[in-house]
Amino acid sequence: MTTASSADQPTRRDFLFVATGAAAAVGTVATLWPFIDQMNPDASTIAAGAPIEVDLTPIAEGQDIKVFWRGKPIYIMNRTKKQIEEARSVPVASLKDPATDESRIKSGHDQWLVVIGICTHLGCIPIAHEGNYDGFFCPCHGSQYDSSGRIRQGPAPANLAVPPYQFVSDTKIQIG
């Protein structure tokens, strides 16, 4: 592309080439976005992920239910006095993922544990009321969570996540 005719005014010519190349690059990148963004959740999926309300009255002390929100299982556990005590007597500093039991529940509703029932190791669903800590046991790779959903033993790196929720009344929560 270096020939005699360009020698007299190389800058103007270079500017044109750079401008065209830049415009092509901008256009290509802008065009790519719709092709990528289409993989994100669509509007109906987002709408279906709206908050849900759960009535707590049927859950007796020591029992739990599993509800689904955004396709994820949520454990709602009505903890016994013993479970609460166990969760609070552990020295926080000794935990793998230190967090107080109080920080994982809503104050005034101490018996209610609401956690996303997905093992933080590789996504299996732990079984409630199993394992050595009166909490959850994941059958896939043996992770054990206590009655506050905190990781106590096994390969999982973090506590069971607490979903966003609030109490609408004493017997009803809204998740999401």
């Binding site: 592309m1 020939t3 005719s5 360009s6 010519r13 044109l16 080439f17 401008a19 065209t20 415009a23 092509a24 901008v26 256009g27 802008a30």
Partner: peptide, 20 residues
């Protein structure tokens, strides 16, 4: 708007290249 500008740029670029 983009395409019209781009086509203009392409036209002059093509002309410059073919001038040789």
């Amino acid at each position: 708007v983009f395409l019209v500008i781009f086509c203009g740029l392409m036209y002059f670029t093509k002309k410059k290249v073919w001038a040789d």
